[in-house]
Design a protein around this nucleic acid. Sequence first.
DNA 1: GGGCGGATTACCT
DNA 2: GGTAATCCGCCCA
Length: 211
Amino acid sequence: MHTTAYQKLTSGFYDRPDVLTIARELLGKIIVTSFDGELTTARIVETEAYAGVTDRASHSYGGRRTARTEIMYREAGTAYVYLCYGIHQLFNIVTNKIDIPHAILIRGAEPITGVPVMLRRTRKKIADFTLTRGPGNVSKALGITLAHTGESLLREDFYVASDGFVPVPEDIIATPRIGVDYAGDDALLPYRFIVRNNKYVSGNTVQNKVR
DNA sequence: GGGCGGATTACCT
DNA sequence: GGTAATCCGCCCA
């Protein structure tokens, strides 16, 4: 498997005003990491949009700027990685203009290349659907850590690409986001995008409800 | 300087 | 369905 047919997404893909459109279009795209010469790739099947200062579920709600959230205000195509529950490192992609803190959480992906490397990183023995299902597992399998927060996705060893595949519209479902009950009414917004019937999508209960 | 809780996961009953 | 694991970020003092 070579990456020569992959077209790296450019600044223009990320630098657009509608974070929901970008989150939807990221379905089917491929995350590529080649840290320490170890190539791992996986096709995105689940995303969540976080719509900046007006979104109560977002870390940047109300324009909050801290050492951690500062990354969200950077240029489109920057990686925002943060620690959740003291254990899991969650990978987001910053979108829109500088100072507009939109971000998209990558919640699920389907392994393509480098499964043995992913198995070692996750300390799993078998490559079942849990390998890259759920945001914590996606980062772990692809080797994405807190050290990558603030880094550009336009670089050579960490980016998102297209191989021309696009899910048909009927296979894309929008649902409420997972684990954001604290956000009041905003927890009900359909800002989560999933590929229908894909086993690498988390939260199947919600998926079934929406069906 | 201290206390609390989370954009989760895996393993338990 | 319940909960332990595990720790940084955030807020308040």
